[in-house]
Design a protein around this nucleic acid. Sequence first.
DNA 1: CCAATTCGAAACCATCATGGTTACGGATTG
DNA 2: CAATCCGTAACCATGATGGTTTCGAATTGG
Lengths: 140, 140
Amino acid sequence: MTNTRYTVAIHVLTLLAYAGPEALTSEYIAGSVNTNPVVIRRILAGLREAGLVRSQGGPGGGWQLLRAPEAVSLLDVLRAVDTEASFPLHATPPNLACPVGRSIQAILTGHFHTAQAAMERELARVSLRDLLEGVKAQPA
Amino acid sequence: MTNTRYTVAIHVLTLLAYAGPEALTSEYIAGSVNTNPVVIRRILAGLREAGLVRSQGGPGGGWQLLRAPEAVSLLDVLRAVDTEASFPLHATPPNLACPVGRSIQAILTGHFHTAQAAMERELARVSLRDLLEGVKAQPA
DNA sequence: CCAATTCGAAACCATCATGGTTACGGATTG
DNA sequence: CAATCCGTAACCATGATGGTTTCGAATTGG
């Protein structure tokens, strides 16, 4: 999994929280992330669908955070980008004539879900505000 | 991450545990997983480096589990295949001239590590023996 | 010693996800 | 009306992944 969208999404949301009510353009944001504005718009489009941000066209437009930073958890962001962080099963279905092949997927699904849930519990404990505090505590 | 090696590794190890002391050939194992023998050998080569299995060439050869099923956890398997399950950071380094860009990676690394650790704690609680019991409890 | 078996490893390929880029239309602002 | 900015499609290079073929080497057992 070399999918960096989750990290970029968190970065961008933290930047928006840092900026407060001011709208930031995708070009400006891309300057902080160090990538292309279209990449930023793609990711922010998903976050908009999740109700986390809004966009505004035209001069003076850009992107704004719709919730208070303490009301957005890292789990919220994960759900918004939906980068299926779980464990993928087999590429091709196992042999159903084999006792192990027949049942392994159902068994693993349960255990993977439990592990995933434990991870999500931790992500739910961290908010954008926590990240902001970390950023501001940074030495110049 | 559409990396199925972890799931296949667990499947194969469960199959070896199911077979007991008998050695299974990569071709036989591939029949259960429903893939190519070389794919199986590739994955098992990694598990051998981790000390989980051994291989034997020639007629009557094949693969055997080196530990008791209850002594192999899903976390052991994850470490063995080392499919960096964590969250990748930025594709290109963020802009260090931006306060958020400068500090976001270090901050996220800590939180990601905490979440990853919680997931691994759950994986450590499940052993191959648990999976075997699930397989054997399966209706014919 | 020989033949069959099995792994080991390299090489190659098709497929797919990803991030980056260009381009252009549409909406908004002033 | 002109400038700004998003929305979206299209295209591309890159890399990871799983599958496949092939051949050599080691081992086993007659």
